[in-house]
Amino acid sequence: MLEVKNLMVFFENAIALNDLSLEVEKGKIVAVLGSNSAGKTTLMNTISGLLVDMKKKEDRRGGERITLLGALKFEGEDILTIKPSLRVRKGIVLSRERHPVFRESDVVENLKIAGYLTEKHKVKEEMEDVFQLFPHLTKLRHRKAGLLSGGEQQMLAIGMALVARPRLLLMDEPLLGLSPAIQSDLARAIRDIHKKNITILVTEQFARPLMPIIDRGYVIENGMLVISGTREELADNPEVRASYLGV
């Protein structure tokens, strides 16, 4: 479904992604593991198009700071340089790192804004699905998003991505900063989302809470691919066990 080939991203002269290749098969849950500044967010932003947008705006002001090389294919089509809105239309939706929701809007309005490209009657349906997936949000419908707890904001952020009707859902560190209990709740929610025929690419620093639900994983360090394999292969790999599973 998604094919990343020899992707290189430079900020000025610093290299953020170095000759990175990976693949996401349709219907799978794929994890990208990496520690701080490994390049996870850069990868997600490249796939969702945020980086192209950032580059366009900087270039317009005369900067030439960001360089993007390589190939990015979605269902066989090259999407490396197309704008974010076109990617959303194709079904690629990103749930950003640290759940940046619309803080002044209440929960319902957040979901409505996220449904910008979804037909109006479908937005209602999707919203109900979100409240079914996260019953906890139901009683917070009219609470301002800025006042929600971190866990609640994360649920909302995931819900918002769902209202945009993804076929490939990108999740950038959805478990970051949450308690172990909520982490496993969310891992379960991710599996439920996957059951709705949504392919998932998820990044994390630690693999443990994700391990039970993923099909494949890639480990990146300093923007480079270091290990890849199926869940079983990763679980058996001593390096992964030491650095990302903590055993």
Binding site: D53, S85, V88, S95, V101, E109, K112, I113, G115
Partner: peptide, 17 residues
């Protein structure tokens, strides 16, 4: 609603098209 979104968080708004 798009106006509300972009006013509050441009990058997040971009992720919804």
């Amino acid at each position: 609603l798009a106006f509300r979104g972009i006013a509050q968080n441009e990058h997040t708004a971009l992720t919804f098209g």
